[in-house]
Simulated assay, not measured.
Amino acid sequence: MTEMKDSILAVRGLKVDFSTPDGTVEAVKGIDLDVRSGETLAVVGESGSGKSQTMMGIMGLLAKNGTVTGSARYRGQELVGLAPKALNKVRGSKITMIFQEPMTSLDPLYTIGRQIAEPIVHHRGGSFKEARGRVLELLELVGIPEPGRRIDSYPHELSGGQRQRVMIAMALANEPDILIADEPTTALDVTIQAQILDLLKSLQRRFGMAIVLITHDLGIVKYFADRVAVMRRGEVVEQGMTADIFERPKGDYTRMLLEAEPSGRKASPPDNAPIILEGRNVAVDYTIPGGLFRGASAAFRAVDGVNLRLRQGQT
């Protein structure tokens, strides 16, 4: 496979192996991929297909029993086998990554402001105090409400969607060329999923960065991706433009994935079905305790006047 025009990341013959007590497991079996400037490439496949391990191998983030061979060239610079010090100049600056569960990536002992500032201080120098203004800009950019207050919050004080926004802010801190998003919305409910995807699209347009989206959700792929690479059992079995993959899939496995997507609609219950649950004007308030650094206590309304009616047989 020759390198694509405008390719900023060219992967050739990439292999990822893991040593186990039962022998060597071949997670990725010599794949080729290209990422072009400003595009969204979706890497899709079922669990265990090797899509996440491909990107972890490129980023030098494999577990201790993992090894990566082959080639991954970022703007001509070979990343496979690169010394950690040199790799760190690319990782977290030019190529960044966000994961599906931010609570496992965020340190519970540090404020989100401190954690967003970390890559800024590491790659650009200066102090955490000097980085604070940039952190506030990033929090506002990703849609965190009241950034001046939230900058000193800890991860457990944020919702799941807000924590994912914090991870995006951290990944964007140094305006990367490539953002790798590994199942970034799996742990979120559907309305928040849409918000996060819209946010990523708007930030991509603003910064001109490429996005590699790792997912098993073909609905997201159709909405979000320019090109698609389909993986199965450690191999890329099909690649192409998104429209071509969905309208004219060539491989049996790709057709099977597309046909596995649910279709149709559930029948509604009859209008006279008995009501089994009803709530009217439901409100839930929380008191946020004050303290030495927080000032006086405040009230937070989490649920504001919700009406709900559920009939037997209704979802």
Rank of each mutant, 00 (worst) to 15 (best):
150 R>V: 06
221 V>D: 05
6 D>R: 02
279 G>L: 10
95 I>G: 08
152 D>W: 00
213 L>K: 01
41 L>R: 07
228 V>Y: 12
40 T>L: 07
184 P>C: 04
111 T>L: 14
122 H>F: 14
162 Q>Y: 01
304 D>M: 14
283 A>G: 07
245 I>W: 13
1 M>S: 13
183 E>F: 07
288 I>E: 03
294 R>S: 11
142 V>W: 02
230 V>H: 01
62 L>T: 12
272 N>F: 09
106 L>C: 13
296 A>C: 02
99 F>S: 06
74 Y>M: 11
52 S>T: 15
250 K>S: 09
236 V>S: 11
289 P>Y: 00
94 K>T: 14
56 M>D: 09
98 I>C: 14
288 I>W: 01
294 R>A: 14
279 G>Q: 01
55 M>S: 10
48 G>F: 10
162 Q>S: 07
88 N>L: 07
107 D>F: 14
267 A>N: 10
274 P>Y: 14
193 Q>V: 04
104 T>V: 03
132 R>E: 15
119 P>F: 11
19 S>I: 11
176 P>K: 00
213 L>R: 01
224 F>A: 02
283 A>T: 15
244 D>P: 04
246 F>H: 10
192 I>C: 04
8 I>M: 07
164 Q>D: 03
169 A>Q: 00
103 M>P: 09
94 K>L: 15
238 E>Y: 06
265 R>C: 11
281 N>R: 06
112 I>F: 06
128 F>D: 06
111 T>D: 01
285 D>L: 10
160 G>C: 12
179 L>F: 06
301 R>E: 07
142 V>H: 06
290 G>D: 05
226 D>K: 09
304 D>C: 13
251 G>I: 10
281 N>F: 08
144 I>M: 03
24 T>F: 12
228 V>P: 08
239 Q>R: 05
273 A>Y: 14
9 L>K: 03
204 Q>T: 00
311 R>W: 12
18 F>E: 03
67 T>L: 06
92 G>K: 00
223 Y>A: 10
35 V>L: 07
123 H>D: 03
135 V>T: 12
209 M>Y: 13
96 T>I: 10
17 D>K: 08
72 A>Y: 03
203 L>I: 02
5 K>D: 10
249 P>I: 04
74 Y>F: 15
262 P>D: 15
109 L>D: 05
160 G>M: 07
271 D>K: 15
306 V>G: 06
40 T>S: 10
135 V>P: 08
296 A>K: 14
235 E>H: 08
204 Q>K: 03
265 R>S: 12
44 V>W: 01
158 L>H: 02
61 L>D: 00
64 K>M: 14
224 F>Y: 00
83 A>T: 02
77 Q>D: 05
109 L>W: 08
177 D>I: 12
271 D>S: 15
5 K>R: 14
101 E>L: 08
66 G>Y: 11
95 I>N: 01
90 V>H: 11
10 A>R: 12
288 I>L: 15
15 K>G: 02
298 A>V: 09
216 H>Y: 07
108 P>N: 09
209 M>K: 13
189 D>Y: 13
303 V>L: 13
204 Q>F: 04
163 R>K: 13
270 P>I: 11
252 D>P: 07
